[in-house]
């Protein structure tokens, strides 16, 4: 296949032109749905392709526009909105589960981490409350970790 023909085939697919970027926006909030995010997204950046999904959004467009939109969306619930890059644009037949059947490649990884993001949200909230963060950091790392002599001395002196 000639280079020109190959370039035509690539540019025929939406969202795969060099300079475009795709990002996942995951929302794990009791106060915000994916639909709210999508509506706000269209208000802010009409020139960007937004796909609403069960977990949040997929946003495709020029990299600068996508970055700006993501920064604005984060403000809606900074501790409960999570963003990551995606290689393929939304709906690409090489990845979309509508064409492949079964779960989308990458789904299980997201499913695994989405169970843990509530703890990350707690961590992000605690960053604004340094007292709580310092207190928790001072605690032993895990129940299996042996108590140090210094810590034991401190406990004896305090009691």
């Amino acid at each position: 296949m000639s280079e020109a023909a190959a370039a035509d085939r690539v540019s025929a697919r939406p969202g795969v032109q060099p300079g475009t970027a795709t990002k996942y926006v995951f929302v794990d909030s009791p106060e915000l749905t994916a639909a709210d995010l999508a509506l706000r997204g269209y208000e802010i950046a009409p020139g960007v392709q937004i796909k609403e999904t069960c977990f949040g959004l997929m946003i495709t467009g020029p990299e600068a526009d996508v970055e700006r939109l993501v920064d604005e969306l984060r403000l809606l619930d900074p501790d409960r909105i999570f963003v990551k890059d995606r290689g393929f644009p939304p709906g690409d037949e090489r990845r979309c589960r509508a064409n492949l059947g079964g779960a989308r490649p990458g789904f299980y990884g997201h499913e695994n981490e989405m169970r843990l993001v509530r703890y990350i949200s707690s961590g992000l909230r605690a960053l604004r409350d340094p007292k709580k963060a310092d207190l928790l950091r001072a605690k032993p790392r895990s129940p299996d970790e042996p108590l140090s002599v210094e810590r034991l001395n401190t406990i004896i002196q305090e009691s």
């Binding site: 296949m1 990551k84 890059d85 290689g87 690409d92 090489r94």
Partner: peptide, 22 residues
């Protein structure tokens, strides 16, 4: 800037002539 798999896969996706990256 996080360097993750998506960035290198995106580079392949946006390369002309590759039908089934990665």
């Amino acid at each position: 800037r996080p360097l993750g798999s998506a960035l290198s896969v995106r580079e392949k996706v946006q390369t002309a002539g590759l039908d089934s990256p990665p």
